[in-house]
């Protein structure tokens, strides 16, 4: 399996080229719609949620784990925020007090994510449950708590001022995209420039050697699941602001999609390898495919089909390319 991810950089370039080809084909097929400012804008509202969730899953995959609970975290955070916005804020609040309430809500949402991630981290690093099982359990638990709180109903009707986050633009950039850019830039720096980031890659490469090298494994793992949880919380903010409602089981298909995006972006599910930029390109590729096919009047289900096909196509392409690369070396040797 490790072989799969060796030629990561050339695979990344190939993904980039394919993404551009997808873009060009879509632009050529439906130029009147695809290349419009409106489409670009609407895409920029759509993909940040999936993008952030994919980055969250990527972080945990780098350590050799996975976070299946991240969508559950996003929904739970969304519901806590929704409770504040609908139950706590007194009628008729506006201006600066309103702003404070909003900030409070967002802080509650994001810290819910952090706390949930901390719980995942504890279960994995301290109790020793395999990540896939621990987060399978907490996925049920977090969603379960959300269902218990809402009794299965959606909470809606948030303050106008809050909805700005999901629906407005700063200059030409949609607010969600703005958050996405800031967050991914931050995560990218964190992964490549800080000792936490490097430790995370090293744990994913060889957990035992990491311990023997003096890396505080438990601490790093807990931090990475917290990070994933925080990203889940941020996604929760965008989700409820965009749809003006919070629901316990919103976007449950996001989990598998986010795994798909990470893997497509070159993240090794066994740990140790993967770059933020790869995941960003992958999520863009899927967004182009998805918007383009919408314009071609393909249903959502056709998109599901194409996404799956696209994932397998890229993986097979990587497989053939990597094998060819190995064969070429042989040929060169023979010529000598």
């Amino acid at each position: 399996m490790k072989n799969w991810f060796k030629n990561i950089d050339s695979n990344l370039i190939r993904l980039l080229i394919i993404t551009m080809i997808v873009f060009i084909i879509m632009a050529a097929l439906v130029p009147s719609k695809f290349l419009t400012l409106r489409n670009i804008e609407s895409m920029s509202f759509q993909f940040p949620e999936l993008g952030l969730l994919s980055i969250a899953i990527m972080i945990t995959m780098l350590t050799g784990g996975i976070d299946l609970s991240v969508v559950g975290i996003a929904n739970l955070s969304g519901i806590f925020m929704a409770l504040i916005f609908t139950k706590v804020i007194p009628e008729g609040t506006s201006g600066f007090p309103m702003f404070l309430y909003l900030i409070m809500g967002i802080i509650v949402g994001v810290s819910t994510g952090a706390f949930a991630g901390y719980l995942n981290g504890l279960l994995i690093a301290k109790v020793g449950i395999t990540p896939i099982l621990a987060t399978l359990g907490t996925m049920q638990l977090f969603t379960g708590i959300a269902v218990v709180i809402t009794k299965g109903f959606a909470i809606s009707g948030f303050p106008e001022a809050f909805l700005i986050i999901g629906n407005s633009k700063i200059l030409f950039v949609s607010f969600p995209l703005f958050i996405f850019i800031l967050t991914t830039a931050g995560i990218s720096v964190l992964l490549s420039k800080t000792s936490l980031g490097i430790n995370l890659y090293l744990i994913g490469t060889n957990e035992k050697a990491a311990v023997f090298s003096g890396i505080r494994k438990a601490r790093v793992l807990i931090k990475s699941y917290m990070l994933s949880g925080i990203l889940g919380g941020i996604t929760g903010v965008i989700m409820i602001a965009r749809t003006n409602s919070a629901k316990a089981d919103y976007g449950s298909s996001y989990v598998l999609q986010a795994i798909l995006v990470s893997v497509l972006g070159g993240v090794n599910p066994a740990g140790g390898f993967g770059k933020v930029i790869g995941v960003v390109i992958a999520v863009l590729a899927l967004q182009f495919l998805s918007s383009g096919f919408s314009m071609l009047r393909f249903s959502n289900f056709a998109k599901e089909f194409i996404w799956g096909a696209f994932l397998l196509f890229i993986m097979v392409l990587n497989f053939i390319q990597n094998r060819k690369a190995a064969k070429n070396i042989v040929k060169k040797e023979d010529l000598k």
């Binding site: 490790k2 890659y201 060889n206 035992k208 990491a210 023997f212 003096g214 890396i215």
Partner: peptide
């Protein structure tokens, strides 16, 4: 127990003094 095989020599070396 010792090496991060697929990682760079540099990372393998400075890991202890990060």
């Amino acid at each position: 127990e010792g090496l991060f095989l697929q990682q760079s020599i540099a990372r393998n070396t400075y890991v202890s003094i990060l």
